[in-house]
Amino acid sequence: MAVMEVRHLSLSRGGSPVLHDVSLAIEKGEVFMMIGPSGSGKSSLLRCLNRLEEPPPGSVFLNGTDITTRPVTEVRCRVGMVFQQVAMFPGTVAENVAFGPAVRGETLPPERVRELLDMVTLSPDLAEKSARELSGGQAQRVAIARALANDPAVLLLDEPTSALDPIATHAVEETLLGLRERIGLTLVWVSHIVEQARRVGDRVLLLDGGRVVRVDRAEAMLDPEQGDERVLAFANGDESGMQARGRQTEEDDRGRAD
């Protein structure tokens, strides 16, 4: 059974549609990439998965349960999230890592903090360092450890490397893929870099104008020879071409509806 499932999710904000009839299923332990031009709704879709944005009832399921029927704080522990802009909280690295359990009134043992730091390939000696002194790549890995402290089944990643340099990007990618190997973590990863989707993704969802254009295996979709021309146009930085084709698809849809 799918870990997370989205069924006919439509969402509008301030009267304008953001997502239109999105359906997908994410399998346990897979790296599920979401790509698309800016404004395509990929971040909004991601944020519906942990209810940072409110999906309509009956549209997002975690292990078969409608997440809007569960306490939201519980959903967010099961479905962790890491953001593009890392916000380290005041205090030490250890205090940051222990934040999730702390808000539930639990104490995370120091050995568990060290273990989590090790899991994200950081030196456990960083535990007592002030979190605001970390480099961008270190901070992002602390943010991952912080999410792992809640023992999530799924980790949502909102462009986790787009604020990082290539070396830090590589380190964070390795860390995340390592977690999939080590604890079978499911990753739902929003990216605007097709190259990254090809590098780390198992399956890729292409979103445009709030609609699913295609979901397929990364190799099939992103292969330079046999890949999807819409994705490849986007990969070549041709966002306008991508959007023009997206509109074309939309018009085709309308044509069919009529």
Binding site: F83, A87, F99, A143, A147
Partner: peptide, 12 residues
């Protein structure tokens, strides 16, 4: 950013 990071970790 900081507030949503906390919310995403299960904070009220």
């Amino acid at each position: 950013n900081q507030i949503e990071s906390m919310l995403a970790l299960g904070a009220t």
